[in-house]
Simulated assay, not measured.
Amino acid sequence: MDTGGDCSGGGGLEEEAARREREWEEVVEAVAYDSCTWPPPVVAVCGPGNSGKSAFCRLLLNTLIARYRKVGYLDIDVGQPEFTPPGFVSLHVLEEQAKDLTILYLRNPKRCFFFGDVCAKRNPKLLLTYIFDLYDYFLKEFYCFREVDNPEKSAIPLVINTSGWVKGTGFYVLTEMLKYVSPTHVIRVSTTVEHKNLPGGTFWMNQYDADPPINLVEIGAAHNSPRHLLVKKEAKITRDLRLMAYFRQCLPRDFNISCFDDLIRGFVSIHPFQLRLSKIHVIDLHRQVLSKLYIFQKTAFI
């Protein structure tokens, strides 16, 4: 039985995986330790869905933490966020490296907004408002240069994880975000299917605008590599797991949950919080209420 072809094919995949792993590691090292990266880098990672953006972000975060001790992480992918349930836009400040880059974690954000959808199509302007607010908050609280010798108050780098929807409304949100943030680095993750990729160059700039001082880096998508970093994500399954993990925190540790039905049964079994009516005080703000209407208003409010 001739197995030479199979062995050769397997060896080719392993070589490609090793090459891609080296490519990713070289890029994150350049971003983190380039002597020109002061102030600390603001890095936007862009590319189509299932290309490995989240995996690359995890590797980049670990490398930046090793140098700066703290790293900001702005997650604007409401469909498949890294550290929160779906539907959230969030800002995190990370201080510990992930020990296992293939495990997805829930983390408490420094600040977040509930967008309420897994897609920007219904209200892209609201999503952009949330993104801009979180970025402004990061600049105010974590990108300070007044005390560069104080590690607790010095500026920290920022990694921005973007959505894999790079056409139509998704492309509009991405370009508006890049214009507003003006990152120091844009990592463009590309697949072998060219029509799925983002345009080359500073695609978010207007035709007659001067090119900003920015580092544009293109890397290959993570198909089959790097294997120890890549988490294959089926969108719906990942969202379900995120939601279950989030609400699981409200239930006893020994309560077994394997599906949404188990989660629902768990919440039904919880005794609701009870409060006597006599303990409730209603305070009316901004307007006066006639005394004869107060009882009616109080009853309707409750």
Rank of each mutant, 00 (worst) to 15 (best):
P48E: 03
V31I: 14
P41W: 08
P85Q: 12
Y105K: 11
C57N: 05
T84V: 08
E29R: 13
S90E: 03
L60S: 07
R122L: 09
P40H: 04
R67V: 05
V118M: 09
C57Y: 00
L91Q: 05
L60N: 02
H92V: 01
Y105M: 14
S35A: 14
I76Y: 03
K70Q: 06
K121V: 11
P40Y: 04
A32I: 11
L74C: 08
P81Y: 04
G116M: 06
T63E: 12
A66I: 03
V71W: 01
R67F: 12
S35F: 12
A30C: 14
A32D: 12
K70E: 06
V71P: 04
N62P: 11
F115Y: 10
A55F: 05
T37C: 15
N50E: 15
N108M: 12
F114A: 14
R58H: 11
Y33W: 13
Y33M: 07
A98Y: 00
I65T: 04
W38D: 14
K99R: 14
N62F: 07
L101N: 09
F114M: 12
P86H: 05
S35I: 13
F113Y: 08
F83M: 05
P86Q: 07
F88N: 05
E82R: 05
L101F: 06
G52W: 01
T102S: 15
A44K: 01
P109G: 07
V78E: 01
C119W: 10
Y33K: 09
S35K: 15
D117F: 02
D77W: 10
E82T: 05
E29G: 11
G47Y: 01
L91A: 08
P81W: 04
A55L: 03
A98W: 00
D77E: 10
L59E: 12
N50K: 02
G79T: 06
D75F: 00
L60V: 14
R111P: 09
Q97G: 13
W38V: 13
T102Y: 11
G47V: 01
A120C: 10
Y73C: 03
T37V: 15
F114S: 14
N108D: 13
T84Q: 00
K70F: 01
N62G: 08
R111Q: 15
D77I: 09
A66V: 01
G52I: 01
F114P: 11
K53S: 00
L64S: 04
H92A: 00
D34G: 15
G79M: 06
V78S: 03
D100M: 12
V42T: 06
A98G: 02
R58W: 08
G87Q: 01
V42F: 09
T63H: 08
L101K: 09
P39E: 11
R69T: 06
R111W: 12
G52P: 13
F56D: 01
A30G: 13
A44Q: 02
E96L: 13
R107A: 09
F83C: 04
D100T: 11
E82Q: 10
G87M: 02
G116A: 08
V31H: 03
S90K: 02
P40W: 01
D75Y: 00
